[in-house]
């Protein structure tokens, strides 16, 4: 207990003595962690945006040609009665054509190539949001396709799967990136602690000659390393918090719906950053200290 007290005292004394060195290291570490966190948050946000977006995907059901009004309405009633479906929009052949015309604008003349109206009538269905798992949607779509008078069922499967691969790639990239930052921070503390060790080699030698226990020599250096990592981490947490809140507020001013898209930063992340900083620098200083042969 007292040993820890002496180690802490000695560590903080030398932190003060080497304040500029420590400051540089702390800044380097906090920048590293900040970039990492920003990247992680970007990935998390993109992931959740895609998740939400995918949930707003509707199922479009194209009806077979030549169905009577009654038959079409019957299909619509069936959808409306389905407890899984929250919204049913009917788009008639005519509306569809009108939509295409406005979409094409002056190019709409090419539609005149067709005799009559080539577009089918359709229903746009929204699945209740709590049921929106890709697998469930796929199943639902398959069921609807088997109903009478249905020509085709479309839902954003391709879109969904390519967005999924995009997030997967981003996640993998984030892991590698995180690994890189980990190595960088470990290396920074390793180097700094090695420098401290060299500067104090005479005193360390004397301590050894006086019979200092291993921990008495090593603990202050480990504490110093951890201090750098955790303070660096805390700084990037604070920076992250400030920037996040500012950006969040600013964007929300113009696009209020952003609040639905951007996930707020989980509180535990603010704690996790200094803790992981401390761990990374602990590893670095531990490797540096391995050089003390005793």
């Amino acid at each position: 207990m007292n040993t820890l007290r002496y180690a802490l005292r000695s560590a903080f004394k030398s932190i003060w003595l080497e304040k500029w060195f420590n400051l540089i290291a702390i800044f380097a570490i906090s920048i590293g962690l900040f970039i990492l966190c920003a990247f992680v948050m970007l990935t998390v946000n993109m992931d959740s945006a895609i998740q939400r977006w995918s949930k707003s995907f509707g199922i479009i059901v194209y009806l077979s040609d030549g169905l009577s009004r009654e038959e079409e309405e019957k299909a619509g009633d069936k959808f409306r009665q389905d407890p899984d479906i929250s919204e049913v929009n009917y788009i008639s052949k005519e509306t569809a054509l009108e939509n295409v015309r406005t979409a094409l604008g002056s190019n709409s003349l090419i539609l005149d190539v067709f005799k009559g109206n080539p577009l089918p009538s359709s229903f746009e269905l929204k699945i209740k949001s709590d049921l929106l798992e890709p697998a469930y949607v796929r199943e639902k779509a398959a069921k609807i396709e088997k109903m009478n008078g249905i020509k085709e069922v479309q839902y954003g499967e391709k879109w969904l799967s390519s967005l999924n691969t995009a997030t997967k790639i981003m996640k993998i990239f984030a892991i590698f990136f995180g690994g890189g930052i980990f190595v960088a921070i470990t290396f920074i503390t390793y180097s700094i602690i090695k420098i401290f060790f060299h500067r104090r080699r005479d005193d360390i030698e004397t301590l050894k000659l006086l019979g200092a226990p291993r921990m008495f020599i090593r603990l202050p250096l480990l504490i110093e390393g951890m201090f750098m990592g955790s303070v660096g981490g805390a700084l990037s947490s604070i920076a992250l918090f400030i920037i996040y809140s500012l950006v969040y507020a600013k964007i929300a001013e113009y696009v209020p719906s952003i609040k639905l898209i951007i996930t707020s930063m989980p509180i535990f992340l603010y704690v996790l950053v200094p803790v992981s900083g401390a761990l990374m620098s602990l590893v670095g200083s531990y490797i540096a200290i391995g050089r003390i042969r005793y």
Binding site: D202, D203, K208, L209, G211, R214
Partner: peptide, 18 residues
Amino acid sequence: IPQVRRKIGIVFQDFRLF
């Protein structure tokens, strides 16, 4: 070695003060 050294008080010729 540390254990042995703790049994010994040394007055170094070159002091070795911190």
